[in-house]
Amino acid sequence: MKLGSYLIWAAVAAVSGLFVLLGYFIPVNLIPVAFQLRLLIMQWAVLLAAVGLFVGLANIFLVHWTKVGEQSEGWPYSAILLIFFLITLMVGLVFGPDSETVRLLFNYVQLPVEATLSGILAISLALAGFRILSYRRDFISVVFVGTAFFVLIGSGPGLIPNDGPGYEFFAGLRNWIAQVAAAGGARGILIGVALGSVVTGLRVLLAIDRPYGDG
């Protein structure tokens, strides 16, 4: 790989990242200059993330504008999105983001749509539970479905009467699964995730991975 300006970005990313990271292990607040510098870098990060949201919204607009312009597949959806994007933006700019009109849009458009999607999610998961053994017939999938079944029986209201003969057994089994088997397994998975996260972060800090580009 040719040497280039990426070395500057890599150096800036590595130095500022390691500086902030070391602040978690060394009490930088005892050194006022280091404390202020670390604070400044973190404030810049928050500020840049906010600018990122603005750029992201411009990106949404550009993507759909291009699709409408080229009349590519699904362009009517893009046109509808652009119209309501602009209407919402104008309403927000004219009446203010905390106004009653914007709140109405949020409460009667966005909230119901998101609630509907949550409802679809519940149905999708139930169907996926039934479907899982049709496309992944392995031991772990059988354990997964079996565990879900016993936990549902042990905790679902009305599935087994509280005074019924099997209630004590299934409630006990559910508690054992949740508190022993699931908790132990979750800790094992979390250790794996933590190790992976640390090494991935270190690769970025050491400029081995350069998501900010090489140019």
């Binding site: 999708s124 998961l125 996926a128 539970g129 899982i132 496309y135 992944r136 997964f144 879900a148 979750a186 094992g188 998975i189 979390l190 794996g192 995730v193 190790l195 992976g196 996260s197 090494v199 991935t200």
Partner: peptide, 24 residues
Amino acid sequence: EDIQSQALLYAVAEYPLIGEEVFA
């Protein structure tokens, strides 16, 4: 990386990645 979402993805996706597999 979220453990609860991993359980959901395990049920839904044909090829789920569990734990450290995400980073491999």
